[in-house]
Design a protein around this nucleic acid. Structure first.
Length: 935
RNA sequence: GCCCGGAUGGUGGAAUUGGUAGACACGACGGACUUAAAAUCCGUUGGCCCAAACGGGCCGUGCGGGUUCAAGUCCCGCUCCGGGUACCA
């Protein structure tokens, strides 16, 4: 066999393993390059062809950089804590660790088949005790720190307690929990303990009191807060795990519930997470997703006095104080604490009914339901801060309690929701924009010109906004305010298969367990206890430590994945999560490749933890991933058969419309080039055993097809193992890269794989004849052969540098076609060629390298360089355009000066023919490119 | 609604700074080899038109305008598709 890929691939994989080829070490004689894949969750289904796409791309880069002389770090591991293994455990009693182990070995064997250059000696698993002890350690650091906003970095809680003991909390500027702030922004730490407290007060607090107070400052803290509770999963979920009111995993309904949970104060980092985006090379769409998720908006906090309620003021957040003259009413969230205080007797019943109604509507119903405008008048009025006019105060569920102050000033002329609300309830809509028709809706363009707005009349909103801000601040009517949509993240899960917290409770006070490593205990069942405690409460002996109750919650899936890229740098360190020496050596991830679905989860949390560890001076960089590429999803191509209704007769695709047919998915393994294997189909399922077929003119049964998501139920899953078996790993690697731009979603179509396989065979035939005889010789290469090689080196190198994986394959194909044409069997050409194809087809490249007598392994072969002189052609052929249309080709010696090209082309008889006697008005010669004659 | 992408032959896609649109493949069609099939090799393949042929012309990158010697690429205005997100004040 001329290209025995099975033998070749097995041979070189064994060699790489035996030699430890891909084990990487810190070294200072070469620049480093860290290329990382998002590590997989090892699911029971194994890999389909979509999974390796990103892995192949990163492997190509890892190999390319290595040949270019970089010291490459290219590790892989498993995100092995998580829900599916636990759900499976609940159903079968199988310990999640066992399932996980099985899934990991399946993944590993599938990955190994593809010839990746991973350094497996650095493998990490988030569920391994050697790994999660450091996840726990980072948690304890988060617990032990808060955020000093003056220094704009994390600072130890001990600094805070020292300060409290000396001078209380005067002039303190630390990030503090929202639940600690009153409506007016005052601190409130419990009964009789508000605002500024003295050292004496602090020192007089009980241990429990101190612990509770400090929770308001810790980066990891316990709080009673509204959380997303998923009854079906029996656990809380973070905001990013809830999509449209349903759980991301499983699609179960999620409700709001008040619970005491561990939280992460990611909000302290909101601005730095936003600013950091400017310094990283990520796609605009992911950056935009993060910006929106953080949702920074700047505006003003305005105060409205409530008529007849001395000293009771409603704070309102507005990004548009320039439209203040148009404010005609206030709207509070139904849950706003003042609602019942201000509601008049006559409105009380109606208001309470509305509150009940709102509370009963789940988030999901609100989302799915009608967008009808609802609301209710409280009977109270507030005074307009500029005019003193009375403005009615309403409540409505379009105002959210959790954002801003939970109250808005309605400017119906300038906000569409306010406009609709005013329309629905007949409230006044003061006109404040010149030339705007209020019948049509609100004016939201900031270029609109204001009227009826006092000093701001005639200004555009753009101009009036800063004026309004300055005026209102000066007058003491408003203060500048920045709001974020970002909320602190829930960090507790009521599940078994996760990191246990290194925390126990002593007299209700949470204490870190230091010294002992808290291991995940064995339990008799993976369900909550009868008292509703999480599964860990079942672990007798474990559930009480040091005489006190353990924390029964576990950490969420994103805990382990927030820092795994650091552990690869120093995977076996027993004294630290990663030594500073190692993290300084490897630094940021230079290239991160993975799906775009983690925009608001993993990618935000790992940035947060990185910044935190940077603040603690434990690592030297505060963004984890310098450059990221998000690969697109590979879609499946489903095949269909058409059954005449009520029969077992199947008609071919061409005739499907001449009968009443049902379209049924058919397993794509039974279909080759849209033609169905009839016997295979009959044998596929018992109900098709007696199937009859109506064939087309060629006597074939043609199937229909459609591109859709790959899934088992659609029988369109392409398994990489089968393709490796049929074509070899090198073919699969090249083909996945050849499909199209990495970032684009694209359909999987196995038909094209033949072409790529053919390319590799053709490549092989340059080196070895049909009978296996070596064709490589030491003759002098022809100029054509040299030009073909150097052209290919140039194109491949440039395309790899701009990460254009797909065009590299085309370039290699063109190169091989041209070299074949030039009968290029000279060692001087074929040896660099083997080095050139090595990143894409590493197994074959080793074989060909060896055949050429290359020294060592091709993995370490220096990247070939192109020689510009070899590319120079003696003649340049210009396309000659007349008025922009190409009319003929014109060749001149390549060193002809543009002016000489011009005069030469004008003397050409074809030019005269085109001009038909006219004289050219203008001639443009773009050297080496094109000639355009205007005339 | 808002934000981010995208639209190029029968299909996947290429065209990197405005410079020959359709590279490279797939598929299809025709041919060679073969008892046959597979494999391999050769040729044709955006549409329309003129020509017996050699050749030649016109149109063409979602739609409509514009800038330019020259536009898939830049500008203005739309349409459709994909993804994200949502009563965020």
């Amino acid at each position: 066999m001329e290209y025995d890929f099975k033998a070749i691939e097995a041979k070189w994989r064994a060699r790489w393993t035996a030699d430890g080829t891909y084990v990487s070490q810190e070294r200072n004689d070469k620049p480093k390059y860290y290329v990382l894949d998002m590590f997989p969750y090892p699911s029971g289904a194994g890999l389909h062809v979509g999974h390796p796409l990103g892995y192949i791309a990163s492997d190509v880069v890892a190999r390319y950089k290595r040949q270019c002389g970089f010291n490459v770090l290219h590790p892989q591991g498993y995100d092995s804590f998580g829900l599916p293994a636990e759900q499976y455990a609940i159903q079968t009693g199988q310990h999640p660790a066992v399932t996980t182990e099985q899934n990991i070995s399946r993944y590993r064997s599938q990955l190994d088949l593809l010839g990746f250059s991973y350094d497996w000696s650095r493998e990490v698993r988030t569920s391994s005790p050697n790994y999660y002890r450091w996840t726990q350690w980072i948690f304890s650091q988060l617990f032990g720190h808060g955020y000093d906003q003056s220094a704009d970095q994390a600072a130890p809680i001990s600094a805070l307690t020292d300060r409290f003991a000396e001078r209380g909390n005067a002039d303190l500027n630390w990030a503090v929990g929202e639940e600690t702030l009153t409506e007016a922004g005052e601190l409130h730490f419990g009964e009789g303990f508000e605002g500024v407290f003295s050292a004496q007060q602090w020192n007089g607090l009980s241990e429990k009191g101190k612990s509770d107070l400090l929770m308001a400052y810790r980066m990891a803290y316990l709080a009673d807060s509204e959380v997303n509770w998923c009854p079906a999963l029996g656990t809380v979920l973070a905001n990013d795990e809830v999509i449209g009111g349903l759980s991301e995993r499983g699609g179960h309904p999620v409700v709001r519930k008040k619970m005491r949970q561990w939280m992460m104060r990611i909000t302290a980092y909101a601005d730095r997470l936003l600013d950091g985006l400017e310094r990283i090379d990520w796609s605009d769409s992911i950056k935009e997703v993060q910006r929106n998720w953080i949702g920074r908006s700047t505006g003003a906090q305005l105060m409205f006095n409530i008529e007849g309620h001395q000293g009771l003021n409603i704070e309102v957040f507005s990004t548009r104080p320039d439209t203040l003259h148009g404010a005609s009413f206030l709207v509070l969230a139904p849950e706003h604490p003042f609602v019942l205080d201000i509601t008049t007797e006559s409105q009380r019943a109606e208001v309470q009914a509305y509150q009940v109604e709102t509370a009963a509507r789940s988030e999901r119903e609100r989302m799915a339901g009608d967008r009808g405008v609802t609301g209710c008048f409280t009977g109270a009025h507030a005074a307009h801060p500029l005019t003193g006019d009375l403005m009615p105060i309403w409540i409505a569920d379009y105002v959210l309690a959790g954002y801003g102050t939970g109250a808005v000033m309605a400017v119906p002329a300038g906000d569409q929701r306010d406009w609709e609300f005013a329309r629905a309830f007949g409230l006044s809509i003061p006109p404040i924009f010149e030339g705007h028709n209020l019948e049509e809706g609100a004016e939201t363009d900031k270029n609109a010109v204001l009227c009826n707005s006092g000093d701001w009349n005639g200004m555009t909103c753009h101009k009036a906004l800063p004026e309004a801000m300055a005026f209102l601040s000066e007058a003491g009517l408003a203060k500048p305010k920045v709001n974020h949509r970002l909320r602190d993240a829930v960090f507790s899960r009521q599940r078994y298969w996760g990191e246990p917290f290194p925390v126990c409770y002593v007299d209700q006070i949470p204490q870190l367990i230091e010294g002992d490593h808290v291991l995940l205990p064995e339990v008799d069942a993976y369900l909550p206890t009868e008292e509703g405690e999480p599964p860990l409460a079942r672990a007798e002996k474990w559930n009480v430590q040091q005489g006190d109750r353990m924390e029964f919650n576990t950490m969420p899936g994103w805990a382990g994945s927030s820092w795994y890229f650091l552990r690869y740098m120093d995977p076996h360190n027993e004294n630290a999560f990663c030594s500073r020496e190692k993290s300084d050596h490897w630094g940021q991830v230079d290239l991160y490749i993975g799906g775009a679905e983690h925009g608001t989860g993993h990618l935000l949390y790992s940035r947060f933890w990185t910044k935190f560890l940077f603040d603690l001076d434990l690592i030297g960089f505060d963004e984890p991933f310098a450059k990221m590429i998000n690969q697109g999803m590979i879609l499946g191509r489903s095949s269909f058969v058409y059954r005449i209704e009520g029969t077992q007769t199947f008609v071919t695709f061409e005739q499907r419309k001449s009968h009443r047919t049902q379209r049924l998915h058919v397993d794509i393994s039974l279909v080759q080039n849209d033609i169905l294997d009839l016997d295979g189909f009959r044998a596929w399922r018992p109900e098709f055993a007696n199937a009859e077929f109506t064939l087309n003119e060629k006597g074939e049964y043609r199937c229909g097809s459609e591109v859709e998501k790959m899934s088992k139920s659609k029988f369109n899953v392409e398994n990489p193992d089968d393709l490796v078996e049929r074509y070899g790993a090198d073919t699969l690697r090249c083909y996945e890269m050849f499909l199209g731009p990495l970032e684009q979603a694209k359909p999987w179509d196995t038909q094209g794989i033949n072409g790529v396989h053919g390319f590799l065979r053709k490549l092989s035939r340059l080196y070895r004849g049909a009978d296996g005889e070596t064709l490589v010789h030491d003759g002098q290469p022809s100029p054509e052969g040299e030009r073909a090689l150097h052209k290919t080196i140039k194109k491949v190198t440039e395309d790899l540098d701009r990460l254009s994986w797909n065009t590299v394959v085309s370039a290699m194909m063109i190169g091989v076609n041209e070299l074949t044409e030039a009968k290029a069997h000279q060692r001087a050409l074929l040896q660099p060629l083997a080095a050139l194809v090595a990143p894409y087809a590493p197994h074959m490249a080793e074989e060909l390298w060896e055949l050429c007598g290359g020294s060592g392994l091709v993995v370490d072969a220096p990247w070939p360089k192109w020689d510009a002189e070899k590319l120079v052609e003696s003649e340049t052929t210009y396309p000659v355009q007349f008025n922009g249309k190409v009319r003929f080709q014109f060749s001149v010696p390549s060193d002809t000066a543009p002016a000489d090209v011009e005069s030469a082309v004008l003397q050409d008889e074809r030019t005269a023919k085109q001009l038909q006697g006219r004289s050219p008005k203008k001639i443009i010669v773009v050297p080496g490119r094109i000639i355009n004659i205007v005339g």
